[in-house]
Design a protein around this nucleic acid. Structure first.
Lengths: 189, 189
DNA sequence: GCAAAGCATTGCGCCAGGTCAACGTTTTCA
DNA sequence: TGAAAACGTTGACCTGGCGCAATGCTTTGC
């Protein structure tokens, strides 16, 4: 149940078995159906999730009704509505599974308790933030000034299995394209 | 010289005077002319900067020759080519001042030394990362699916003095618009 | 296992915003 | 201070990608 989480932690920091125990004890296993809502829009996010199996999607819907996907967390990754989780403000996202999923969930309270208490966990959190920041930067970089074809090539280069894993519609909303356009672009690759 | 930095640190964490001393001692004052390059493209970033006066701009140029501005650091803010600084890989950015500037500079080594040694400094770094991540997220959110007018209204709402402070050209490259389009949009506000 | 709903793909017409160019104004630096 | 370069603005034109809608395929849930 915790083996993937342990692998994740061990691969990033030199953490004692005792500390690992303590960390794992804070995570509660959760099963979720396909398309289950983990956080409704406007709620304040209280949990961080680790994906054992399945996938979490974070997305938002603007006034015009257009969906924009911000982030996917796949197997072996962490995900949450970070802005809401950090600032404890109402989320401007929906957080949902897109497949039947098995997750590990930690409360915000326990999470920051671990950050304070276990230096290796603080280090992991710092890494997640650094990586999140870098990824966001690269995405801005990658997307601004790119046309549809370039965007698609960019994801293929950076996340090769992405287009195979998620639906055309969701991929389009992640790339900032309409499903029609993405479909057309894929047709001429 | 260090008063703005001290104000910044004190406003975010409860830090002792001794620790403040130690932090400030790691920062070296730098003067820079207008349009001075702080980091050439492809170099590995070794410094973090705090802006006392002036402004730092981070931007990149894609194959087509189009400039995209990623980030501005104004008075009282921190700025660097974070991906390169963190990962010690060649930067995919140019870092330049856009005005005659007075900066405080800390080396990467000293920076992470402070992060390890002074918990309040680690906390500040965590805050910078969190905020950077949130800002990047909001920018993706704010820009995808928005038309030109909405983008401009968004910056005005979130950074009221932005359009007054930076040139039309740079603002356009930050917003992902052509200078012509930004000019036209501003004309009908 | 089948009806119903959702999804991918593709044709068509349209428009926001890009390019290019012209012109006046501001900035820069010998 | 004055010539040259850079910038902002605006007009004319063009195109990439969107919305809409039709069609066929896949998924889903009772």
């Amino acid at each position: 149940m915790y083996s993937q989480l342990i692998t994740f932690l061990k691969s990033r920091t030199d953490i004692s078995d005792a500390a690992l125990q303590e960390v794992c004890a804070c995570f509660e296993p959760i099963k979720a159906r396909r398309n289950e809502t983990l956080l409704p829009y406007g709620a304040v996010c209280q949990h961080y999730y680790f994906v054992n199996k399945g996938c979490i999607r974070l997305f938002t819907i603007n006034r015009a009704g257009t969906e924009t996907t911000r982030f996917f967390a796949f197997e072996g990754g962490f995900g949450t509505a970070l802005p809401s989780f950090i600032e404890q403000k109402p989320a401007e996202d929906y957080m949902q599974t897109i497949e039947k999923s098995e997750l590990l969930r930690i409360s915000r309270e326990s999470f920051f308790h671990l950050v304070e208490k276990i230096p290796q966990f603080a280090f992991i959190y710092r890494q997640i933030l650094e990586l999140g920041f870098i990824t966001a930067q690269k995405r801005i970089y990658g997307f601004q000034g790119f046309d549809a074809l370039e965007k698609v090539k960019w994801v293929i280069a950076h996340q090769p299995d992405f287009l195979l894993r998620v639906s055309n519609k969701m991929a389009a909303s992640y790339l900032g394209l309409s499903p029609s356009t993405l479909s057309r672009v894929k047709a001429r690759l």
